[in-house]
Nucleic acid binder design. Structure first.
Lengths: 215, 215
DNA sequence: TGCGTATGTCACCGACTGGTGATATTTCCT
DNA sequence: AGGAAATATCACCAGTCGGTGACATACGCA
């Protein structure tokens, strides 16, 4: 019997034919999707290749392995973050440092709530500080820093306030609450599912900011 | 040739001979060690059995699998946590609700800084909310609740303060800063390695508590 | 003593992982 | 047209994973 001429290739999801740039983009997109949906535990060569619908060999050829692919994601999320936070800063100049910080904190909270990929990366940073994820972190914090500096304008904080430590505490709280909410729906007995729950959190954040940057 | 009478068993690390209770304890200890040192990604049947120096079959026989072993850990950490936080509460009655919360927050910060296993579990909760880890979480939060209730005594918070939300924000901040410190040594540009760094964090926490529970 | 059972060990299974060499197919340039 | 290079796919490797059945050994009780 002669073998059928059709190479039995119906499961090809998209006929993205022999276009290196398109294939690279598909691989990066697949990696982002896997990371966002499965988390970093499921982010492997095989999983990404399966998702992208092409052979894993191409990951080695075009990116030199998983590391290079993650670097490519890092470049993208830098842009994403900038695009996502930009409108927050331009939303009219703040009248005081207190108002500026409040806006930034609440904006950060909302942005993070809306971005599953960013949450996965942040969880990754905490759970397994590999060299791989630290490159992602660098890309992220670079964009964050730029955003902060750009938003500050000419405003100056009140004297005698440890700005770096205060903001770190606030950002840490927000980040952790959002991550806990996404993972378990609650933290420390406080449910974090309804919008009313988040309104309570926002109120507390506002109160803390007001207390720290009063004047 | 007759087979040698010595069963070639020199790599046996400890001659814990045929004692089920001792073996179970060794398995639990091995699981805790693996979790503390490798993190939850490395917590598997094979790794634990290797570490304990016995066959993985025993994990199935005595604990019914990895789940049962994790449950056993849960029971232990409940006691540990209680033993670790107890002295904090008994350290003389607080004179005000503000003072009570301040002590609890700073005590929690220090206890978490000293407990690698607890940090791993908390990171686990955030990174992959499996049924497995949720049982650990329940054991932990149960002990925490008991500790809080026991410490409160007759003190009452000032009216008009959202106690649950405020404390959740503070605990989230502390937890996240400690986890970030252990993972990367810094957070949001704030280095978290020296004791001076932590003193800045403590000062901010105190200020926030004072602001929230003033009166 | 001998026998049942508790305890411990070994060998194997299928599935999956990251990684690599060889091969097929298309495109493009001379 | 021809032939080199780019692109894509396949087949396979060694290793690890969780899981299970069969086997060896020692203990304790009748």
């Amino acid at each position: 019997m002669q073998k059928p001429p059709v190479p039995t290739k119906p499961p090809a999801p998209e006929n993205r034919g022999r276009d290196r740039a398109a294939t690279e983009a598909a691989l990066v997109a697949a990696a982002r999707a896997v990371l966002a949906e499965e988390g970093f535990v499921g982010l492997g060569i095989n999983a990404v290749a399966r998702r992208a619908g092409c052979d894993k060999q191409l990951i080695y050829r075009y990116f030199g392995g998983l590391d290079g692919l993650v670097d490519a994601i890092g470049n993208e999320i830098g842009d994403d973050l900038r695009r996502s936070l930009q409108p927050l800063a331009a939303l009219g100049q703040a009248g005081s440092y207190r108002e500026l910080v409040e806006r930034m904190m609440l904006g950060f909270l909302q942005a993070l709530r809306d971005d599953a990929l960013m949450r996965r990366i942040m969880a990754w940073e905490i759970a397994s500080p590999s060299e791989l994820v630290q490159r992602l972190t660098r890309a992220r914090s670079k964009s964050m820093m730029a955003w902060v500096a750009e938003s500050r304008g000419t405003l100056v904080p009140p004297a005698g306030v440890d700005v770096a430590a205060t903001n770190a505490v606030l950002l840490a709280a927000i980040q952790h609450l959002v991550l806990s909410s996404a993972a378990a729906g609650q933290f420390a007995g406080l449910t974090l599912t309804s919008e009313a729950d988040w309104e309570r959190v926002r109120a507390v954040v506002k109160a803390i900011v007001a207390g720290a940057y009063a004047g």
